[in-house]
């Protein structure tokens, strides 16, 4: 992208502007042309009532995923076979099925004996998302740790650093840069996965849209709007990740 001539880049902007103009015109026309029914924009508040839940799921899930990924990723790189083993089991189990399966299990099975853990739907959602994305994140962390040059470790040993100090001052700062782009992508996947919480009765934006279907009808508008909302949430993140990746190239 950076190598494109100015002319090509401005031509691409022209296409984007045309696209946005066309969407705007379409919305405007449907606003005017539609008879007394609710214009598409009136559907927006109804759907957005679920936005708070969507955001809670995303942020809560992201924080949990980050914490779990760091712990499990470091554990997976441990020299202690037991620590490695336990974290590996966690990672493989949670990567072995989809978020939905895990969400259902936490929501339907955990309250039952022998676990007897009652969780609200929101807690279940955040837990499932965090544990699932955390498992993928753990692999990213592990990869980043192992990618650190052997020489760094040897130099640290030569300087008589303790393993803890070495981890804190040498390995983690370098690993952090490496994990940012893949984590960015995982966050985008997490955002999309929050839609699954609508299937365990959480009132996120997908749930709101789906229930609108029953009350208002107007299905094409409802789900188109929902798609656009997710796009507007996720695409800036995508651009952000790409920006980080491009900056990293000069830093590294």
């Amino acid at each position: 992208m950076q190598n494109q001539s100015t002319w090509v880049r401005s031509r691409n902007y022209v296409f984007w502007i045309i696209g946005i103009l066309m969407v705007g015109i379409a919305i405007g026309v449907s606003l005017i042309a539609k008879p007394p029914e609710i214009a598409p924009f009136d559907l927006l508040p109804a759907i957005l009532r679920g936005l708070g839940v969507t955001i809670q799921l995303t942020v809560g899930g992201a924080i949990l995923a980050l914490v779990v990924a760091l712990i499990a990723g470091i554990a997976r790189s441990s020299r202690n076979a037991i620590v490695r083993g336990i974290s590996s089991v966690y990672v493989e189990v949670f990567r072995g099925s989809s978020v939905l399966v895990q969400m259902f299990w936490i929501f339907f099975v955990l309250p039952l004996p022998p676990f007897n853990i009652e969780l609200t739907a929101l807690q279940a959602g955040i837990l499932a998302l965090g544990l699932n994305v955390g498992a993928y994140g753990a692999e990213v962390v592990r990869g980043a740790i192992q990618a650190i040059d052997r020489g760094q470790i040897e130099a640290s040993i030569a300087l008589n650093m303790s393993p803890g100090l070495m981890m804190r001052r040498v390995i983690i700062p370098q690993a952090t840069v490496r994990i940012l782009p893949p984590f960015g992508n995982l966050m985008i996947e997490l955002l999309k996965a929050t839609s699954l919480a609508s299937l365990i009765t959480l009132s996120d934006i997908t749930f709101q849209a789906a229930s609108l279907r029953q009350t208002v009808g107007r299905i094409p508008e409802v789900f188109s709007l929902l798609l656009v909302i997710y796009f507007l949430l996720a695409y800036p993140l995508t651009l952000g990740v790409r920006w980080i990746e491009s900056r990293r190239r000069w830093a590294a």
């Binding site: 999309k192 279907r213 798609l227």
Partner: peptide
Amino acid sequence: EFIRSTPLLVQLFFFFFV
């Protein structure tokens, strides 16, 4: 880009209902 940025679930709903 649009399809990749939106959840599969919503796309399923879209096609199924629309």
